[in-house]
């Protein structure tokens, strides 16, 4: 049973490990690195939205906090990567905790606006604190990630780092979902009152998930900052929060693989459409529209439905 449950991840891991061996082009590796980074960010958001049923339009803020924390510490203050990473996680978690306690009392669209406001305030502060963050001109010269003397200084090495982090987090997330707190989360999603009635500490659980998802976003931000070696507030504006949310909905909410698919689609699509120049925007929007209209459960939901259909057909034929 355990093997069967982990089979997709194992297959995925093998594919991810082999892929760059035949694909040495830094451009394709670069795309895959970004897909990995966005997948990590969407995984946290998916846990929050798809499992706990709480919306956030401010996750770009945590992504930015992660990126700026390690970026500033390593580039400006010459701190080693690992202590900087720990600092980034602690800072993001602490801020997310405070925001979570305050905002998660709100529901639905009110929560959406509150998180949106938090995200925008962080964005404005990053822009305004020119002396500290570099403001809109950004922060340049972020060094490569170095762990124990090993430097992830090429696209090839970075690719493995990003996807290794992804797989580790995936296992962690899958375990959470299948644990007691995971079941509590899903209960929370269907009905908060019922969850509370069954003795689940709703507020505590919501805040915990919120903090965890913020840390995922921060990790993605850290990886982004060190892979591009430059960050500016612009890469984590409101539209980035909306993009993460779109990735989840398009890929399949409440399905961990959905976030990956969504991240892959929304990263690849503009690259493939760039040949259309000025028509890109309208084509991109139309494709998005069609996918969401016809696959309301996202790509993953669509695949599952297709798979079930095939299985049913095969079975029917087997019987007939």
């Amino acid at each position: 049973m355990a093997i069967k449950r982990h089979l997709p991840l194992m297959l995925f891991g093998c594919a991810a490990a082999v892929l760059p061996l035949g694909l040495k082009d830094p451009y394709y590796l670069g795309i895959l690195v970004f897909i990995g980074i966005f997948s990590i960010a969407t995984m946290g958001l998916n846990l929050l939205m798809g499992y706990a049923g709480q919306i956030s339009l401010g996750h770009a803020a945590f992504y930015a906090l992660g990126a700026y924390a390690t970026g500033l510490l390593t580039a400006k203050y010459n701190v080693h990567f690992l202590p900087a990473l720990i600092a980034a996680i602690i800072v993001t978690a602490a801020i997310a905790y405070v925001i979570g306690i305050a905002c998660l009392r709100l529901k639905g669209h009110y929560l959406a606006v509150a998180t949106l406001a938090v995200g925008e305030i962080v964005f404005i502060c990053l822009n305004a604190a020119v002396g500290f963050t570099g403001g809109p001109s950004g922060l340049a010269g972020i060094p490569s990630i170095e762990i124990g003397g090993f430097s992830f200084d090429s696209d090839f090495k970075f690719y493995y780092l990003v996807w290794a982090v992804f797989i580790l987090l995936f296992i962690l997330t899958a375990n959470i979902i299948n644990s007691r707190s995971g079941r509590a989360l899903r209960c929370l999603h269907s009905s908060e009152i019922a969850a509370a009635a069954m003795g689940i500490n709703v507020t505590k659980l919501k805040v915990q998930v919120f903090v965890l998802s913020a840390v995922y976003a921060a990790l993605a931000g850290v990886l982004y900052g060190h892979s591009v070696t430059f960050i500016s507030p612009q890469s984590s504006d409101l539209m980035f929060s909306v993009k993460l949310l779109t990735m989840i909905v398009v890929g399949g909410m409440g399905n961990l693989w959905g976030g990956v698919l969504g991240a892959a689609l929304l990263t690849l699509l503009p690259e493939m459409l760039s040949a259309f120049h000025d028509y890109e925007l309208i084509i991109y929007g139309s494709i998005l529209l069609v996918i969401v209209m016809f696959l309301p459960d996202g790509l993953m939901g669509g695949f599952e439905a297709l798979g079930n259909k095939i299985i049913r057909k095969v079975r029917a034929r087997g019987r007939g």
Binding site: D25, P26, V228, I231, S232, S235, P270, E271, S274
Partner: peptide
């Protein structure tokens, strides 16, 4: 000619493409 959309992540990809592909 590649379009960056004024976006840093996209620029990085496009520049990589121009250099390597």
């Amino acid at each position: 000619i590649e379009d960056t959309e004024g976006d840093e992540a996209k620029t990085v990809l496009k520049v990589k493409k121009l250099i390597s592909s």
